[in-house]
């Protein structure tokens, strides 16, 4: 299959993605440095925020604008869960609210579990040099 590399490296879409993704990370960094939130709490905050903004339909505009710049950060994970739940409801009603979210993000969760187990089999933690 022929790939049009000009489309793959479309500068405008990559720049938008870079900037939006970077800004979301800056927000996280300010939270780390200015508050005493632990990493786990910041991840929870971002995923919940993404789900709420996704449910309200606001996050979709950011995704349309920045592509992976909005979906790769954890807010995108939350958005994906919410979007899946809404699509589930549209397809199969009440049951879809329960199955849709996890179904939409199943790939990420399942791969993280599998890779995590593999990594623990073949590797062991090392002391930080610094």
């Amino acid at each position: 299959m022929n790939i049009n590399w000009a489309n793959v490296f479309d500068v405008m879409s990559l720049v938008k993605c870079f900037v939006v993704g970077g800004i979301i990370c800056i927000i996280g960094q300010i939270l780390i440095d200015k508050t005493k939130l632990t990493p786990a709490r910041i991840l929870v905050l971002f995923v919940t925020l993404g789900a709420v903004l996704g449910g309200l339909g606001i996050y979709k505009y950011l995704v349309d604008f920045a592509g992976c710049g909005a979906t790769v950060p954890l807010t995108g994970f939350g958005y994906n869960l919410a979007k899946g739940a809404i699509e589930g409801v549209q397809e199969m009603g009440l049951l879809g609210a329960f199955t849709g979210g996890v179904k939409a993000s199943a790939g990420g969760i399942a791969s993280a579990v599998l890779f995590g187990y593999f990594a623990s089999l073949i590797s062991k933690p090392k002391m930080k040099k610094q």
């Binding site: 990370c25 800056i26 996280g28 991840l43 790769v72 950060p73 954890l74 807010t75 993280a112």
Partner: peptide, 11 residues
Amino acid sequence: GAGSLIPITGF
């Protein structure tokens, strides 16, 4: 810091 934590890589 948050640059690798917030993307799905941090998860």
